[in-house]
Design a protein around this nucleic acid. Sequence first.
DNA 1: GAGTGGTCTAGACCACCCG
DNA 2: GGGTGGTCTAGACCACTCG
Lengths: 240, 240
Amino acid sequence: MLDKTDGVALYIQIRDTLREQIMTGVLKPGEKLPSEDDLAARFGVSRMTVRRGISDLVDMGMLYRRRGVGTIVSQFHLERDHNRLTDFFETARAEGFEPEVRLLGKEVVPAKLAIAEALGLQESEPLIRIQTLRLANGVPITLYEEYVPYKLCPMLLTEDMRNRAAWQVLEEQGFAIKFAVQRLEARLADARTAALLNIEEDAPILFKNRIIYIEDGTPVELIHCHNHGNLYSSKMTLVR
Amino acid sequence: MLDKTDGVALYIQIRDTLREQIMTGVLKPGEKLPSEDDLAARFGVSRMTVRRGISDLVDMGMLYRRRGVGTIVSQFHLERDHNRLTDFFETARAEGFEPEVRLLGKEVVPAKLAIAEALGLQESEPLIRIQTLRLANGVPITLYEEYVPYKLCPMLLTEDMRNRAAWQVLEEQGFAIKFAVQRLEARLADARTAALLNIEEDAPILFKNRIIYIEDGTPVELIHCHNHGNLYSSKMTLVR
DNA sequence: GAGTGGTCTAGACCACCCG
DNA sequence: GGGTGGTCTAGACCACTCG
C-alpha cells in the first residue's frame, strides 16, 4: 500500500489514499473510517503517523472527529480552494468557463502615495504596472491592474502576461509567495471601466484590493480588480 | 511554567505562552525562536508536544518554519479571524466601533424556492425570519436578514436577537456550528434598503449571501446581508 | 466495559542550511 | 560539521461515547 522508499512522507501517502477513497466514493459521506489503531495496522505505521494524515483532511473539512465515536466523512466537502491564492485559468476552467486575458498596457510608473505605502516603498519609486482585461467565454469580467516594485523583478516587463498573474511570475523566479490580504467593496463603474466591461456607467462593480506577501511578510504586489457586478461574485468558506 | 494538573493540554499552554510572547513583543517579528529541542527542555515536555503547539501558530500565520534554520516570527500576523465565523459585537468593538442592533421584525414565513433549496427544505416549509439593522457608532451599516427552519429551533421566536445572531443561539442550544459558505456581490440599493441605510436608491451595496452548516454538513441558517457600499468592506486572507 | 479519539513520551534517523 | 526542522516509532494513559 505505502512506498517507504520513494521519498514521499508516509502521512502524505496516507492522506492522499484516504482523500482518494472519499473522492471516489469508496468512503461515503456520513460513513465512519476504520479506527486509528486499525488504520495504523493496515498501513503498517504507528498511530501518530495515521493521525497526522487524518489531521490534514480534518483541516480541509473532508473529515471530522468525534471522541469516543470515530472519524467520519463530512457530508459537505469544504472548498478551501476559495480561501487560497489560485490560478485564474485553472479555476475558470474548473468552473466551466474558457478564460482569456487581453493585455491593455504595461509600463513603469512612479508610485502614488497609497500604493507606495501598501507596498512599503517611498513615494515615486518606480513600479511596473500591468493592466489586463480578463474574459470568460469571450465576455469581459474583470479589469485587472497589477503593481510590482520595479527593482523586485525588472524582467516582468518582457514577460508575456496573458497566461498568468505577476505573482505567478515572481513565484517562478523563486519568491516564496505565501499569502494575500484582500478587501472587497461595492462601487459604481466609472466611464473607463464601464466601457471596458461593456456595462453602463454607475453599474455595480465588485472592487477587490489585494496585497500579496512572501514568507517573511514583505509585500511584493498590489492588485486592483474591477469585477463585473452582475457576472462576478466572490465565494469563500468561513470556519467557526 | 506549565501546569500539568489543570486539565489544559500542554501543547495549548505552550501555544498560548508563545503567542503571548509574540503579542507582547518579547519575541519580535523576524526573530528566531529557541530550537524545538531547547523549548522542549525549557517546558519540560517532549519535542513532539512543542511541535504541536508551534504548528498551531504556524497555521495561524504567526510563525513560519525553515528547515535547517529555525522557527521565525512572521513580520505580518495573519488575521485569520477574518476567515472565521465571529461575533459581530466583539469584532466591531475590536475595530473600535460601538455596535448596535435594532430589531425590524421577526415572523414565521413559508420558504420560497431558492431559500428552501439552500437549506435543504421543501418549498413552503415554515421558516423563522429575523430582520435587524446593524449600526456602528449609531450609523446604519447593514440590513441583516436571517432565515432558520422553524422546526430546528422554535424558541428563536422568543429570544432577544439584539445581542447575537441566530447561529449563536443555535450554538448555545447545542448545535455544533462548524462552518459557513458565503458569496459576495456588488448590487444597487433598492428603495427599502436605501431608506434603512440612509443612502440613495441605486447606491452601491455589498450583498452577502451566507449559509451556515453544522458539523455533519446540514445547513441550519441562511443570511442575507445588505451592506452599506461606502462604509463597509470585507477583508480576508488567502493562503498560497 | 469496550472501543474510540486526545494527548504525551523518549527516543531515532533524515534532509537541509550555514559558517 | 553542527544545529535545525521533518518524519516516524511503539508504546502509554486519559476522557469520552455508547450499548
